[in-house]
Design a binder for these strands. Structure first.
Lengths: 146, 146
DNA sequence: ATAATAAAAGACAAAAAGGTCTTTTATTAT
DNA sequence: ATAATAAAAGACCTTTTTGTCTTTTATTAT
């Protein structure tokens, strides 16, 4: 469904938030290892997210990544649109440039229902809500990490 | 959602079925033009589908592509799995190798609902049912083609 | 038989996605 | 001040996806 970049970004950010809850600011090496993602690629992805203002970072000793509590929660939709665009949320299942109720592809009616459900999911859920689930329950960020 | 290969395969096969209903067997050039897809790439994709037995072809004068009426209808699920694998139907939204009810990622519960709905859609719908919709109604295969 | 036709096969290439690594810059504890 | 630390920047590479084109093979109408 999502591409690798989105998957690593999702897992990475949730891990950062999870550590933040605990008063810690994890570094790249720790993050990549814990979410089972390629070290340098994860670094590159997080750098982009920092530049876009989705997450903050601190250089130097004791540095790492963290969320600015003054900023609103980061919805999955914002994040996904930033990493892979909005095709998933607006695009036609058949790949038509123009496809809507008035000019539907043969898949439109049923596909639109699923697309709407997906929209709802990524609008409602955010990095913080997912981190909370991981903290409270059995949810996990990698096969190794509880 | 789907990759280009899947999109072209879907549109191409529905167009073939649509023409078959009309007693015709369209050739590559016609198909590619009508579904607004790259000529040679469409050819390559259809060749693969022929080799896999999803659709039939006839070389030489008067040749073209057609469906074998003796074969069962071609579900979208079979087709999609052939073109891009089953990640969409089994994979974890977070990209975890192992993620299920017992060992869920933080997105699992809500994501599984959507994945199931998608499964239902592609299991119920098939190339023939989509072609019928296109024939009867306002559904279209390309912005140009009704 | 022959010519015309149309798919099959496969080489090739551009673009995008995914990934690695080194160097630079900023920060901070000492 | 300095050394250690950690992110930022950016060059570079590999693989996959997407796309193009030429040559070959099969079929059929004549």
């Amino acid at each position: 469904m999502f591409n690798k970049e989105t998957e690593y970004a999702l897992r990475g950010l949730v891990y950062i938030q999870l550590q933040n809850f605990d008063g810690k600011r994890p570094g790249i090496a720790e993050i990549a290892e814990q979410i089972d993602a390629p070290h340098f690629y994860t670094a590159k992805i997080l750098q982009r997210l920092v530049r876009q203002g989705f997450v903050e970072s601190q250089k130097g000793k004791g540095g790492g990544f963290y969320f600015d509590n003054k900023k609103p929660e980061l919805s999955l939709k914002e994040l996904i649109i930033a990493t892979e665009g909005d095709k998933l949320f607006c695009g036609c299942g058949f790949g038509l440039k123009q496809c809507d109720e008035n000019n539907p592809c043969p898949l439109h009616d049923k596909y639109a229902l699923i697309r709407n459900a997906l929209n709802k999911l990524v609008t409602e859920e955010n990095v913080q809500s997912l981190a909370q689930k991981t903290m409270k329950g059995e949810e996990m960020l990698s096969p190794r990490l509880k």
